[in-house]
Write a protein that binds this DNA or RNA. Structure first.
Lengths: 106, 106
DNA sequence: AATATTGTTCGTATATTTACGAACAATATT
DNA sequence: AATATTGTTCGTAAATATACGAACAATATT
């Protein structure tokens, strides 16, 4: 068995995907994308989770590199991490296109 | 607090993303995409996991609707689930483009 | 009928994820 | 100095995810 090691790219893509793997985090990213709201407080009012839970989700997105937060007292402003987002887009696109073009398997 | 319910779309996108959220599953999809291999056995030889673990990953991808498997004795052939894959692509694209165009938040 | 091949399922252990409220920290306001 | 506002961190509980080998199932081969 010639077990192949997984590549950094595969790990990175999985990391991004994992961060997207929760509906609350999707909702967060959509809000940030639309710029309808960037503040923790605003999201907290809309999203159906406790503020502590929201903090956890934001932390995960931050750790995955998809968003960044800056303290703007008395609130905290979040936004998309443009650079990493571009990388994510590139990686996802690569996979999605590739697989979309695959032959019918039958 | 006007807590909004999450949409089916958000749930679906998160479901897909979650399925992509493991490097082994990324590797599986890439192999299926490239058509270099469609058989469980072939993947089992290449991917660095026990066959039982591979089965679990394949099951998750199947349950998420991203792949489908057909028994072709003595082996099992897997392939991308074209229809759902197209949906996944659409949903991911939507999010990725949207967020990519968001204003600089500063 | 015994054996081999190919995957799945089972049993199990460990780690991670998710969620909540309470407590805390940092600053602003009274 | 007490109070209010805004988020994070802590403690905790419950659910999922991940991994492995052993056992099993289904068919093919001897």
């Amino acid at each position: 068995m010639a077990k192949e090691k997984l590549t950094k790219e595969q790990e990175q893509l999985a990391r991004f995907a994992k961060a997207l793997g929760h509906p609350i985090r999707i909702a967060i990213l959509q809000m940030l994308a639309k710029q309808t709201c960037c503040y923790h407080g605003d999201m907290s009012e809309i999203l159906p989770v406790a503020k502590s839970t929201l903090s956890q989700h934001l932390k995960e997105l931050k750790e995955a590199g998809l968003i960044q937060g800056t303290i703007t007292l008395p609130s905290v402003k979040y936004c998309i991490h443009k650079e990493n987002w571009a990388l994510a887009k590139q990686l996802f696109d690569g996979l999605l296109v590739e697989a979309g073009m695959s032959e019918e398997c039958q």
